[in-house]
């Protein structure tokens, strides 16, 4: 009984990054789709993206290896490829955020609200 609990726990710990990433992905996904507030949507989007980055980085992680910086003393490096990908991903995420925030400001100027439901209602009234 106790042993199985230990097993489960150690399995959880050894996969903790993956699990957290998945959990965060779901939270972000949920925030993005269900919240009607546009800024909340954007934050959700960021959470979702960082969770994927976390996932990717934890894949690249090699136990007991060091960062991919050339050093004579180090035997193993973690995989540098995901880093390059994620670096781009972060930048892209920031630019997406900036762009969508600019749009939020524009929408607020026009509709006076940042709630997508209300915007939809106002738009229908306009038409």
């Amino acid at each position: 009984m106790f042993e199985t609990l230990i097993n489960i726990l150690s399995a959880l710990v050894s996969n903790m990054h993956y699990l957290t990433a998945m959990l965060l992905f779901l939270i972000g996904f949920h925030t993005m789709l269900t919240h009607s507030n546009l800024i909340k949507k954007i934050i959700g989007m960021n959470i979702m993206e960082t969770s994927v980055f976390l996932f990717f980085i934890s894949i690249g992680y090699v136990h007991n290896a060091s960062a991919p910086i050339l050093d004579d003393r180090v035997a193993a490096y973690v995989n540098p490829l995901p880093s390059a990908l994620i670096l781009t991903g972060i930048v892209v995420a920031v630019s997406l955020t900036a762009f969508s925030l600019a749009m939020v400001v524009m929408l607020y100027k026009h509709y006076g609200t940042i709630c997508s439901d209300q915007i939809m209602r106002l738009r229908e009234e306009e038409q």
Binding site: M48, V52, G89, S100, R123
Partner: peptide, 25 residues
């Protein structure tokens, strides 16, 4: 405003798509 709203919708859903693409990758 209509275009901005459409673009926002497009962006949010596209980002969702990119997230899935990256996760799949």
């Amino acid at each position: 405003a209509l275009c901005v709203e459409a673009a926002f919708k497009y962006l949010i859903l596209s980002t969702l798509g990119s997230g899935m693409l990256l996760l799949g990758t």
